[in-house]
């Protein structure tokens, strides 16, 4: 057999192996989704979303879990987004290139790859033991904020870097200051990509279980964090409270984890239904990110 013929054989063989590898991933994923949906879809209903967890599987729901997830996400966003975008802007636009900033840069990239349970242990030490935040929404949100901070910093820098220098030069040439150039030209031009990065980071945080279990987030929470805004009959009629940030919480992945570890069959259906909800949220966020990325593709 000539080597030319052999090359062709190898070529088609590789094509086949590649296709098989791709299909394997897709089929396994599809099987998992089908399995989960068939296990859990009959539990999905209004009651499932409005019931607290219960000892009886058929009465249990994810009320405290999805409300907790929203609390945690908001807390995470409050800390991670301004800090992440701020440091991204600083490092990309202001910091001088030297050994020190190179060192910081490498470490941020490394931090993005640190296993999440390590952040949980850090959080346990700093936020709970040292700062006495207990197992609160604030502690959980701060840990997840730390976890996704490197991701947001990196994607902000990436987004700013993709803004062509010709735009900056044009702005400077008109007598704009550095901040005006960043504020009016660079940030708006990179906004779509920054937002994409933020959404992807948040969708990672929403599925995190390990760091929250490490700090001992409770799994049986038959109540919600205190409402931030309450209405009453006395002046001034409205009562704003930050107490919710200091209340204990649970989140969807923890609730799911808890149900999966129960022996009763019924809880497995609850877990499957919870997974459907979590998957839907995550997929929706990723879809939004993909859409934004597509929409913001090179306009110059």
């Amino acid at each position: 057999m000539s080597s030319r013929k052999l090359d062709k054989k190898v070529d088609s063989a590789f094509k086949f192996v590649g296709l098989a590898a791709t299909l394997f991933g897709l089929v396994v994923l599809a099987a998992l989704v089908v399995d989960v949906v068939s296990d859990g879809y009959h539990r999905l209903g209004w009651d499932f979303f409005t019931s607290f967890p219960s000892r009886k599987p058929e009465q249990a729901g994810i009320f405290s879990a999805w409300v907790g997830t929203i609390w945690i996400m908001i807390t995470t966003a409050i800390f991670a987004i301004p800090l992440g975008i701020g440091s991204g802007i600083y490092m990309e636009e202001y910091a001088k290139r030297n050994r020190w900033t190179d060192f910081i840069e490498i470490n941020i990239a490394n931090l993005a790859g640190v296993p999440s349970v390590i952040y949980g242990i850090l959080g346990l030490g700093v936020f709970i033991r040292l700062m006495h935040l207990d197992r609160s929404v604030l502690a959980g949100g701060l840990i997840l904020a730390l976890l996704i901070l490197p991701v947001i910093i990196l994607s902000t820098r990436e987004a700013l870097r993709s803004v062509p220098s010709s735009i900056r030069e044009a702005s400077y040439a008109l007598g704009a200051t550095k901040w005006q150039t960043i504020r009016h030209q660079v940030l708006p031009a990179g906004f779509g990509n920054i937002l994409t990065g933020v959404i992807l980071a948040m969708s990672r945080a929403i599925g995190e279980t390990a760091p929250l279990i490490t700090i001992g987030a409770l799994t049986y929470i038959p109540f919600l964090p205190t409402n931030p805004v309450a209405f009453n009959k006395e002046i001034p009629y409205i009562h704003v409270s930050l107490q919710g940030f200091f209340d204990p919480f649970t989140v969807l992945p923890i609730q799911i984890f808890n149900w999966v570890s129960r022996p009763q069959k019924g809880f497995l259906a609850d877990a499957a239904a919870g997974i459907i909800v979590l998957l839907t949220i995550t997929l929706a966020m990723n879809a939004a990110a993909i859409y934004l990325r597509y929409k913001n593709q090179k306009r110059w």
């Binding site: 062509p164 010709s166 735009i167 030069e169 044009a170 702005s171 040439a173 008109l174 007598g175 704009a176 200051t177 005006q180 009016h184 030209q185 708006p188 031009a189 306009r299 110059w300």
Partner: peptide, 25 residues
């Protein structure tokens, strides 16, 4: 003032492109 090698209008409206230099003052 300066005009560059490749046309580099801001990804904004025609009006905003011209108004930018005045606005930042």
């Amino acid at each position: 003032g300066m005009v560059f090698q490749k046309p580099n209008p801001f990804p904004k409206s025609i009006y905003e492109n011209v108004a930018y230099g005045v606005r930042i003052q």
